[in-house]
Design a protein around this nucleic acid. Structure first.
Length: 494
RNA sequence: GGUCUCGUGGCCGAGUGGUUAGGCAGCGGUCUGCAAAACCGUGUACAGCGGUUCGAAUCCGCUCGAGACCUCCA
């Protein structure tokens, strides 16, 4: 049996080349994928949902194609718990310190909450979810190697990467498209940087100040690893010197990923990653989402509607669908209007998925060409995971399903089978949507509803519209919508 | 200031040198006891100004506007 990936030519936009490239894994069918995960010192917000869902889509599609994917997504729980002068979440860390809570309590608390949110969004768990704090030794070993090779230097217990030396025989800027001369002329000189030989140099190991609560012993000082180290160390440990895909938000492109490349290249003698993928940012009402702008909203805010900017609650699947309705490399603007449009669209799609289960095939009818929808969906996914085009094509299938349901189109068995396969593969397996509040979940409730619907039908039959409308209105107040169709009346939750 | 990205109809968002994106909203129709849902039909869209071209929303230049990174935020 051949795998799908032998037939599907997948194009991936590689930040390294700024172009779409044919995806060719190093060791098919194995694929190594690393994605930068959250720093767990606050509730997951909208910004966390985008990369999680983007790379969930990538992961799901690669698996669907038959690849065996090792998906690593880290938990950053080291070194970020102080020195944050912003107004927002860092106060939690401060508070933790004041209340003498262990930093790992904060880490644990927000890791659990992150997982819960990701489960709600139906984001699959990665294969490995390593903690930076659990890989201090690996990071120290890596730093040692960089020091030995002469591309780092120690000052007062801290170790810095020598960017200019690296750039003398490598290209620091290969990923972000920056030139070191430009960087040098634009680097600000901050007080904390006096130890560095150059403002471009970045910390591999930082000596901890007395106030710093997270610290580990090292050959150089009690301290903590530099921000970029963890991904280099853990990526290398679990995926090897060189692996296929590294993902993350565009904001991590520089300096994080650029520096990651530099470090790993020195240690391993080759570029660590073949395909760099970056998802774009999210804006809210056209503005960047940020703590300082006061428009940051957590996922729980969205799910409960408990935020001044929100007119109502939006379900996890609405958020997921909304994010998938934009290509991952575009900025995505959140607004109540846009979310409500997404909510309705998604509902239409999922209701059609349910209707599909009730459809009966008619023999001896012309094919409606479901095959072409299938093909179009694969083409869209192969074109750098273009989920909005997949969705657009699925709505073509929705129209066919609804027409068949209304008796306006006859559907043959092959089309029916293909439609069911289409929805299974693209709606549920790849886009990862799930039916929320499905009406067929509870046999007792459905039985009750059938009784009520029958009573209303009886009233309508004797033209007692006052009674039938009362039934409909009362149910509507309970968020139960009755839908009169050719085949009788069905119901669903609003 | 430097580097880079983007500007599509009421809203969100694909696409890209000549062909329908799609969703939501609106309008008209079918269906309905009336609605809702569904189906059918319906839009002077491609920031502005120049240029290249037989032809540009799509390529080039400029202007205006928005955003990202350069400041351990996804």
């Amino acid at each position: 049996m051949t795998s799908l990936y032998t037939d599907q030519k997948l194009f991936v936009y590689n930040t390294l080349s700024r172009s779409k490239e044919v995806f060719q894994p190093l060791n098919p069918p194995l694929i190594g994928m690393y994605v930068c995960g959250p720093t767990v010192y606050g509730d997951a917000h909208l910004g966390h949902a985008r990369p999680a869902i983007t790379f969930d889509l990538v992961y799901r599609y690669l698996v669907h194609l038959g690849y065996k994917v090792r998906y690593v997504r880290n938990i950053t729980d080291v070194g970020h718990l102080e020195n944050d002068s912003d107004e927002g979440e860092d106060k939690i860390a401060q508070k933790a310190r004041l209340e003498q809570v262990e930093p790992m309590e904060i880490v644990q608390q927000y890791t659990v909450r992150y997982h819960r949110n990701m489960d709600q969004l139906n984001v699959l768990r990665p294969s490995i979810e390593p903690h930076a704090s659990g890989h201090i030794i690996e990071q120290i070993e890596m730093i040692k190697k960089i020091l030995e090779s002469g591309f780092a230097y120690e000052v007062n217990g801290s170790v810095y990467f020598d960017v200019e030396k690296y750039n003398s025989n490598h290209h620091y800027g290969v990923l972000s498209g920056r030139k070191i001369e430009d960087l040098l002329s634009n680097t600000r000189v901050l007080a904390a940087q006096v130890e560095k030989r150059s403002g471009l140099d970045f910390a591999l190991w930082k000596k901890a100040e007395a106030s710093h609560i997270m610290r580990w012993p090292s050959p150089w000082s009690d301290g903590f690893p530099g921000w970029h180290m963890e991904c280099s160390a853990m990526g290398c440990k679990y995926l090897g010197d060189q692996f296929d895909i590294h993902g993350g938000g565009m904001d991590l492109l520089f300096p994080h990923h650029e520096s990651e490349i530099a470090q790993s290249t020195i240690v391993n003698g080759k570029a660590p990653v073949r395909y760099w993928m970056h998802n774009n940012m999210i804006t809210i009402n056209g503005q960047k989402m940020g703590k300082s702008l006061g428009n940051a909203m957590s996922l729980d805010d969205l799910f409960t509607g408990n935020h001044p900017l929100l007119e109502k609650a939006y379900s996890p699947m609405t958020i997921r669908f909304f994010i998938l309705q934009a290509q991952y490399r575009s900025t995505l603007d959140f607004s109540n209007e846009a979310l409500q449009a997404a909510e309705k669209g998604m509902k239409k799609l999922l209701v059609a998925a349910e209707s599909l289960q009730q459809l009966k095939a008619v023999t001896d009818t012309q094919s409606l060409g479901i095959n072409s929808i299938f093909t179009a969906c694969y083409e869209a996914m192969n074109d750098d995971f273009n989920s909005p085009v997949v969705i657009a094509n699925l709505f073509e299938a929705v129209r066919i399903i609804n027409s068949a349901k209304d008796g306006l189109a006859a559907i043959n068995q092959q089309d029916l089978d293909q439609l069911q396969q289409l929805f299974k593969v693209f709606v549920f397996d790849i886009l990862g949507l799930i039916a929320e509040g499905s009406s067929s979940n509870h046999a007792i409730v459905d039985g009750l509803m059938q009784t009520i619907i029958q009573l209303r039908q009886d009233a309508r039959a004797r033209k007692d519209y006052a009674t039938s409308d009362i039934i409909r209105d009362k149910l509507n107040n309970l968020s139960i919508v009755l839908k009169d169709g050719k085949e009788g009346t069905s119901w669903e939750l609003k």
